[in-house]
Design a protein around this nucleic acid. Sequence first.
DNA 1: TCGGTTGTGAACCTGATGGTTAAATACGTT
DNA 2: AACGTATTTAACCATCAGGTTCACAACCGA
Lengths: 118, 118
Amino acid sequence: MTDALSATFFALADPTRRAILARLASGDATVTELAEPHEMSLAAISKHLKVLEGAGLISRGREAQWRPCHLEAGGMREAASFIEEYRRFWDDSFASLKEYVKTLEPRTDGGKPERKRK
Amino acid sequence: MTDALSATFFALADPTRRAILARLASGDATVTELAEPHEMSLAAISKHLKVLEGAGLISRGREAQWRPCHLEAGGMREAASFIEEYRRFWDDSFASLKEYVKTLEPRTDGGKPERKRK
DNA sequence: TCGGTTGTGAACCTGATGGTTAAATACGTT
DNA sequence: AACGTATTTAACCATCAGGTTCACAACCGA
C-alpha cells in the first residue's frame, strides 16, 4: 500500500478517522479533544492520527504539551479526481448529456449494422 | 467496517482493485480477462472481485461458464459526496469565493472587538 | 461421457490493523 | 526538583487482508 491514493482511501475507510476529520473541519483540536467523543483509549486515537497524518490528511503543530491537529483536506485531491473519473457512469446530468448527444448524431459511424438485440 | 462508506473506501484502497475498476470502465469483462494484467492467481482476483461486489462497485452476470463483471459506479456516490464536503478546504475557486465574500462585507458583526493578533 | 476451460471455495501462511495496558516523554506549574 | 497534564511509544493480542495451492463445481464441445 505504498502509493498515496491507497493511503488516502485506506485512511478514509474507518469511521473513527472520518469522524476525526469531520471534527477538524470545524477547527483545529488537541488529541484529547478529538478523543473525547470516542469510547477508545487515547493511544488508539493517537494511532488513528498517525494514519491520517501519513495520508497527508492532517498536520500536527506543537504548543507546549499539546499537539493541535489541523485538517489538510488537500490530501483528498487525488482521491477526489479518481472518483470524479467515474461520475459520468452514475450522474444523471451526464446520462442526459449522453442522451442529448445521441439525439444530435444518430449515426456517425460508417459500418457495423449494430443489430444485436436482447 | 459494517457501514457502506467504509466498505467503499476500503475497496478503493487497493491498486489491484482500482485497476480492475479502470478496466471495467471500458466495458464488461470476464474474470480471466481482468486477471490477465496482474501477476496474481485467479483465486486472488476472485477475492478482489468479491470485495468490489460487496462494496457495490461491480455486479456479476452469468453466461455459461463465464461470470462477466460490470462496473456499478453508483456505488461511489456516497464516497464522492463525502469528499466533496471537504472540497471547499482545498479548491482554489472556493478560496477566491471566500476572499470575495470577505471583500463584500468587511464588518457585519455588531460585537466582539476581534483584536486577537499573533 | 470424457476432456478442457472458467471460476470459486477451503485450508493455510504471513504480515498488518485496531485495540488494549503500562511505561516513557515533553512541557508548564509550584 | 517534584508534580500534573498531554501525548506517544512499546509490548502484546485477536482478528483480518491478501496472497498461495489444491480440489471442486459449472459449463461447452466432441
